[in-house]
């Protein structure tokens, strides 16, 4: 292995399955390391912010270690970041979840919960399914989704979703039982998905590969 590989830090804040994220990075040849050390994070060439669980718990864990300010300063300085599931939600301004408060505020917008009923139908929450992602205004050609066709299936498991203030950052939408929500975002150096590419078989792994290639991490 070449030691000059770009260094990717998978941010560990004690929530979520980091093992699979690391396996996905290894599979495509990234030099990725799991770390909760803000110093290491500040020296990284790129960041991955994974996560499963509660927003409040996540923000409080990030703050405890000083990871929140480290992420903010790196991303504002242009370092590529890839947010996954809860990791995507944390990049936004604030959650509507009671008492949850502020996120990292790197993308303007709010986090909302799926309603229990929609058009008089009961909605099962969490949304746990392979569901399709489809194009919005942005082209996928220069994005990590560039090898995918429209309406590709990805794996979702979540109760909350993001609502950006400005929809020009939306890369894909997904429709869950009639409710359309933003399922991925691309804005400058920030790429994030509500679905789990590391749980979405070969097509999902191609997203890791293309994110690494676009950001020259291989």
């Amino acid at each position: 292995m070449d030691n000059n590989f770009k260094k990717v830090i998978i941010i560990d804040y004690q929530l979520g399955n980091l093992y699979s994220v690391k396996q996905a990075c290894d599979t495509v040849g990234m030099n990725a390391k799991i770390s909760s050390d803000p110093e290491e994070l500040l020296n990284a060439d790129a960041l991955i912010l994974p996560g499963v669980g509660a927003f409040i718990e996540a923000m409080s864990n990030l703050k405890k270690n000083g990871l929140d300010t480290a992420i903010q300063s790196k991303v504002r300085a242009g370092t590529p970041i890839f947010g996954i599931c809860l990791g995507q939600q944390l990049l936004f301004s604030e959650s509507e979840e009671f008492g949850a408060g502020q996120g990292l505020d790197l993308i303007p917008g709010v986090i909302k919960r799926f309603p229990e009923t929609f058009e008089e139908r009961k909605i099962k929450v969490p949304h746990i399914a392979w569901n399709t992602i489809f194009k919005f205004k942005q082209d996928w050609g220069n994005s990590p989704l560039r090898d995918l066709g429209n309406n590709e299936f990805m794996y979702f498991i979540h109760s909350y979703f993001v609502k950006p203030s400005d929809d020009s950052c939306v890369l894909t939408f997904t429709n869950y039982d009639g409710i359309e929500f933003c399922s991925s975002v691309l804005v400058n150096n920030i790429f994030s998905t509500q679905f789990h590419p590391e749980k979405s078989a070969d097509k999902g792994i191609s997203i890791y590969k293309n994110w690494a290639l676009i950001n020259k991490l291989l």
């Binding site: 929530l15 979520g16 499963v52 669980g53 509660a54 969490p126 746990i128 498991i157 109760s159």
Partner: peptide
């Protein structure tokens, strides 16, 4: 579920 998230 509080610690790992309901979905887990």
């Amino acid at each position: 579920s509080r610690m790992f998230g309901s979905s887990t």
